[in-house]
Design a binder for these strands. Sequence first.
RNA 1: GCCGAAGUGGCGGAACUGGCAGACGCGCUAGGCUCAGAACCUAGUGGGCUUAAACGCCCUUGUGGGUUCGAGUCCCACCUUCGGCACCA
Length: 856
Amino acid sequence: MAGGSVPQKRVPQRYDPKNIETKWQDRWEAAAAFQVQDDDARQKEYVLDMFPYPSGEGLHLGHVENYTISDVVARYGRHQGHNVLHPMGWDAFGLPAEQYAIEHQIHPRDAVSKNVEVFAGQMKRLGWSYDWSREINSTDPDYYKWTQWIFLKLYDRGLAYVAEVPVNWCEGLGTVLANEEVIDGKSERGGFPVVRKPMRQWLLKITEYAERLLADLEGLDWPEHIKQMQREWIGRSEGADVTFRLGITDADGDEFTVFTTRPDTLFGATFCVLAPEHPLVAKITTDDQRAAVDAYVAKTARRSERDRMADVKTESGVFTGAYATNPVQGDQIPIWIADYVLMGYGTGAIMAVPGGDQRDWEFAANFDLPIIRTVQPPEDFEGEAWAGEGLAINSGFLDGLEVPEAKAKMIAWLEEQGVGASRVTYRLRDWLFSRQRYWGEPFPIVLDADGKPTTLPEDALPLTLPEVESYKPTGTGESPLAAIEDWVNTTHPVTGEPAKRETNTMPQWAGSCWYYLRFIDPSNPDVFVDAAKEKHWMPVDCYVGGAEHAVLHLLYARFWHKVLFDIGLVSTLEPFQKLVNQGMILAPSYRVSEEDKTYLAKDALEFRENTAFIKATGEPAFSIVEKMGKSKKNVVNPDDIIQVYGADTLRLYILFMGPPVADKLWDDSGIQGVHRFLNKAWRLIMGDERQTARARSTEPASGDARHALHTAIAGTTKDMDALGYNTAISKLMVLLNTMADLDPVPEDMLDAFLRMLAPFAPHVVEEMWEATGREGLASLAAWPTYDEEALKTDAEEYAVQVNGKVRGKLVIGAESSDEEILVAARALENVAANIDGKQLVKQMVVRGRIVVLVAK
RNA sequence: GCCGAAGUGGCGGAACUGGCAGACGCGCUAGGCUCAGAACCUAGUGGGCUUAAACGCCCUUGUGGGUUCGAGUCCCACCUUCGGCACCA
């Protein structure tokens, strides 16, 4: 259409998403269509997205998938008459903004607000139905005031503490990372090497909540594999502590404790192993072993924890020269150190039972240490260590007992002798909560002259970030804040003495631990969330996001929520009742060859006969399917798709590609299909420049059309409830194909079609809704209902099986009895031929499906 | 190594509690429309045998076994891919 021309009335236009989409986005905004009221009497529904980090790249297809799924959930909820809270905000603290700021010499705040603008614009263009009046930003002082406030609550309950801990020091980022952020010995962001180094850090006692975090998973409507990942991460194990006293060289009664899940095997403990960092190591090492031990300890310190653990093959360790007394039979057993024992897990010491643990077996074999079996392996067992069930042997008072009984008896003995006790341990470690960076929430903490922390009073919040010259980490492990004397030097809130502020900042996870609560009451200046509103809206009914947050964010947020619950500030035990994980979007990437990892962009390639050739050389390119990434040059920008096809098509396609939970391979060729579908609907209802709209009849659909309509409503509704959007869309395609064969089209079919298409392609539906004279917004219209009666048909088709093979088809009245069906089935020519001369040993009818005949 | 998920046409995928495998879409083929193309419409489209054609028959859901009248679906073993964890005591 030429610019400036006045749209002529009654002349049908072809489907042009561009104009339609902005028109309706503006109308929704003007009508505040998706703004939600707290005092609405309708059933509440809280549909939440994992809020994005607003990167400079803009939205990627993963976001599009995530937020389209939740948008359809939210819109479907509205169609069902629910009062739907569907908010959006920005998780904008964190490393990338800071690194971008360092590179481009701009304040991270400015980088963030620029990116937010880009993101918000893209989100609006996709037609996602957010209540923008509730937008929040984790870097806004009015927001992080409450993040700091919650930290004070944690501190007051003794859940935050300072400790000198060996941490993952990343030279490249100039900061310390949580274990969870370290991947393969490198930083998750940036990929810099990470080494271990002791440092003063803040930690949160998430371990105190381990049991509840584990137990409360049971009641959640989450994907089982995500629950399983959290269980593994928490890593509960039951066993016993056993105390070993030093023997032979022991002068002053030193002892150490090991944790074991198999106290029943204590008679087979032929040596002990300490972590090289264990505090006892220096003390117990004998003079003739000292050189070897010192060398080994030094070597270990240079290795990162990941590195140590990843190295499964190498058996390494050194004898300390010291011996411990096995408490159960008094044997003197050697004490070794080895880097496979970690100071951070359990007690940093183990008792080794080579007869029952393959790892210990190999260590014993390698260093020629004794091996004693304490559990009788099965007769045909040919392996080395036996870790399975069996009767105790070589174990004194345990002999002849099964493993569980032997465990119980040994624990009782240990407790009686005062050398051990039953204990539960967790793999989960306390959460390392401080970062040496600028772009994070400052701790509301002041340190006195001795470095002892005191909290700021609540009325001093928010403690805002000061302006700095440079956002660069100092590289010494201190944050850039440490360089700002005006800010650092303050007075002690209690004594009034000169004091210093804590210069660490909180990790990015902090803001995302409670944001779902702030959406409920986003601008309350007095409390972090109004209690009545919290009670009304919580818990989140549907939380949609990627599996990459399965253990980090989701565990941290659950932890904070439980603390808030204990204080009485929230009303539910868990924040997220239902969790939906969308799959990853994958795309083919192209490289010069398998060895040469130079990635090629699509315009450097030529596609012939399903093979990509490199334009420059004519050689075939090497192609693999992998996660989309800028470095892999296989990123698809949603804006490009919207430009060509419109947002409705993109929304529809990303859902049509497959079930939400499955990983999906991006391939633009399929997008034509859903675009044609929308075009076809448009031509039928609106007409275009060469054909007029199909006539419509006010007569309700009848006969086959009625059956098709009600089947479509029933099927689509079922799919919507199960998040089966790909099949829901296919059912709408079937319904449209049915309508296309009807002239005129019954009005009730068209009406139901529009209502059901609305959550997927809201813009074009609004346009057709309005053009067909319907009242109000299609986005707020009621979901269609179906009539059970109409799902029935007069005649049913049966496949007739003889001995498991289909031998005929039978169409028969739905009212027929089983006996009548069997008679008719046996009479079918091909069926009769197959049962002729044989005896029917089984005959049955599966109503509406199949007739089963078994003949011998 | 351990844990989890998944292997179905040329492609993405569908198939309720075991009951007609391949819905829907892409692609492809033929025809229509067109000056031509795009768009659109119609028909066909897993493989094989038989047939003038229809009918009919056989094979087919990663591989090999098993249970069953009947298996993509349940059981056992194995292979491959993806994701997560990893000397965890």
